[in-house]
Structure formats: C-alpha cells, structure tokens
Design a protein around this nucleic acid. Structure first.
Lengths: 195, 195
DNA sequence: TGTACATCAGTGAACGCGCGTTCACTGATGTAC
DNA sequence: TGTACATCAGTGAACGCGCGTTCACTGATGTAC
C-alpha cells in the first residue's frame, strides 16, 4: 500500500475539522470548496475523493460538532451536576461572552440553524437526531419524565435564541445584557416568585 | 416630469417587499440581485438606481420586517393585553405551526439572525435598534422596570430559539413538540410551582 | 390641438470573479522479485 | 541490496453557471410652444 492505512482517514478528519470551523464562522453557503481545501492544506480536486458532495460534508460536520456541543453542555466538569445546579452551570458556560465572540468553536444551532432549516432532508434528519439526543440527556439531568423533557426544550430554546440575538446585535452592550438576562433565569432564588 | 411623482417610490417599496420575503425564505446571500429583480417584475440593471448596494437593501428590508414583527407581537388584537395574558397570547401566535412553516412572512430573527451576526456594523446597528425597541415595548407590557425588561429578553430569546430549532429539525414531530413545550412555559397555572 | 423636446426609470450587455463538480494526470510510496 | 512495478491520495485545468456591479442606451411620459 503506497500510504499508511490511517493516512486517508486522517486527511478526511482534518477536512471535517476545518469545515466545521469555517461553516460556523462564515456560514455553509459562503464557504467555498476551494477556500476550505486550502485551509486544510490541500487543493480543490481532492475534495471528491472524500465526500460525495458539499452537502455530505455539512452532514459530517454537524454530526461532529453536535457531539461536541452535547459534551460541552453535559460533560467537561458538569457531569456530576443535576437539576437547577446543572442548569445554572450549563447556562453560564453556554451564555458566556467567549461563546458569543467565538462562533467558530461554538454551538452550531445559532450559527447554522437557519441554513439547516433550508437544507435537504438528509441534513435535517441528522440534525434532528442529534438535537433529540441532547434533549434526552438534558431531560434526564432535570429529573426526567415529561416535565424534565419540557424543561430541557425550554432551556435549550432560550439559550439558542439568546446567543443568536446577542451575536446579531453586534459588539454593543445589548448583546451582553441579553446573555446576562437569560443566565439570570436559571438562578435561584427566583425572587419574583418567592417573596 | 415623465412619470408620476409616486412612481419611483412605489417601485422602490415593491423591491423591498419582494426582497424581505426572498431573504427570509432563501437567505440573504443565496438571493441574487437578478432573481430578486425578476421577482419584482424588473431587470437587474435598475437595482442600482434604488439602492447603493445589496447590503443597503438588506438594511431597508430588516427595518420594514422588524417593524412588522413588532406589530405582530404587540398589536393586531393583542393591544389590550398585559402581563401573563399578553405573554400567553403572543407566544401562541409566535410559536404557531403557520409561523414555523412560513418563514417568508415571519420574524426575521430566526431566518436571518446568523447572517446579520456576520454582516457589516451598519446592518447590525439597525437590527439592534429595532430589537431594543421591541424589547422596550414588551417590557412595558410586562410591568416595566428591570424585571419587566429581563422577562422580555427571556421570552423573546426562548421564542426565537424555539422557532429556529423547530424549523431546523424538519417537518417531523419534534418540531411541533418544541413549539408546544415553549408555548406551555407561558401558561398558568405553573403546576410545578403551585402544588 | 399637434408637434418637438427634455426627463429619467428601467434595460441588457459586459466586467472579473468564485461557485460546485469532473477528470486525465502526477508522483511519492510500499511491495515483489 | 537494487530495480521495476502497482497503488492511489492528491493535483490542477477545465466545464457551465450565477454572482454583484457598471454603464451606454432606450423609450414612455408630461411639458412647452
């Protein structure tokens, strides 16, 4: 064999890794195959030895990145937390200034959700399966059952919406205000209700 | 004067109206000037007699559409409502199946937020001003003060996020489940807290 | 009332460029003898 | 050990196409005389 057997898989993974960053930073459509392959240290022709088409790369990027998002939401130091304590810690991480400023390394939902909504069913299917998986794990942390599931959906929705809004309003104060307000939602004691 | 004085402004408004629909449906970048002008019954060359560049059209479209969104959230039958009653009614409208299925006529935030986040500051400035205006009006309906403002941000974030997620997961059951769960958040009595 | 003219909204060819994809090829490699 | 060969990951020219923008023009219109 002319190359070591792990050579091609490594290149494949490198393209996916580079694409996942560029797609989130600049958008899927706005990221050309040419620029993408250059960023991975290759030339455009080689792309089609790795992927049927550009949509297939979007699918693989989303799979990879949504798995990372799940890990960021539930693991990496949050593994032992449950209920409100977990929600507070996860909100603090998700709704951070760093996450707002760094879409390239962040959650793909605010960055690519609208493009996924316009993408072929093959993309949406993979996306939906991963989101459902994340919601299931969140629900378990929140006590399970239909109440846990509902709360998981409510939390994820408000986090995604807040990050999207905070980024779209630009660098100004309003962005940070939005993040802070939604972070505060998870913070007990809920003064509005307790006195 | 060779044309009636309201001829050009009418054409201008028609282009903005058509653009606002196409941008939300297909995305800003993905909507070419050619296709846009055809849809308005014109040819591409005339575009630059109305707008400095394509970005200027995005700005005018966002202004128009965000004003409509404000009206949909606070007016059109919801004018007399306040507090939880208003929140419930607005959530029902915003988180409807019709809104999920019809981005072309809906809120620009889930549809274009990610592109606004990548757009020039001139776009973000207009977007931020309109969002702030909407939040101010929502806050007033919710009792005002910092608590009203915070609640307004929390509600808008969760609605935007829910709609984005519901669209991105495709036509399947999960999308409707997401809308229903976030709609339920505004519904008293909050059983989890009251018994 | 009829004709000549000035206005200007809109036309469509043209610009250079990047898009996604195809395909004949190159050349570094590990293997066979 | 040295040479010939088969493999195949990656190359880069080429395809037709649509992009945003410019610009010399057309032709329908209201006005002037």
């Amino acid at each position: 064999m002319p190359y070591p057997p792990d050579h091609k898989p490594k290149t494949h993974a490198r393209i996916v890794r580079v694409a996942a960053r560029l797609f989130r930073k600049d958008g899927f459509q706005a990221t050309g195959v040419d620029r993408l392959m250059s960023a991975a240290g290759l030339t455009r022709g080689g792309f089609y030895a790795h992927f049927r088409d550009k949509t297939q790369l979007l699918i693989e990027s989303l799979e990879r990145v949504l798995d990372e998002s799940q890990e960021n939401l539930l693991g990496r130091g949050l593994d032992a937390l449950e209920g409100d304590a977990w929600a507070r810690a996860a909100a603090k991480r998700y709704l951070s200034s760093a996450h707002r400023a760094g879409p390239a390394d962040g959650c793909p939902v605010p960055a690519l959700g609208a493009e996924v909504a316009r993408a072929p069913a093959s993309v949406q299917k993979v996306f939906a399966a991963r989101i459902d998986g994340i919601l299931r794990q969140m629900a378990a942390r929140l006590g399970g059952g239909t109440a846990g599931r509902r709360r998981a959906i409510q939390l994820l929705s408000s986090w995604v919406g807040a990050l999207l809004l905070a980024r779209a309003v630009g660098e100004r104060r309003l962005g940070e205000e939005i993040l802070a307000a939604v972070r505060a939602q998870a913070n007990p004691p809920r003064r509005r209700r307790t006195h």
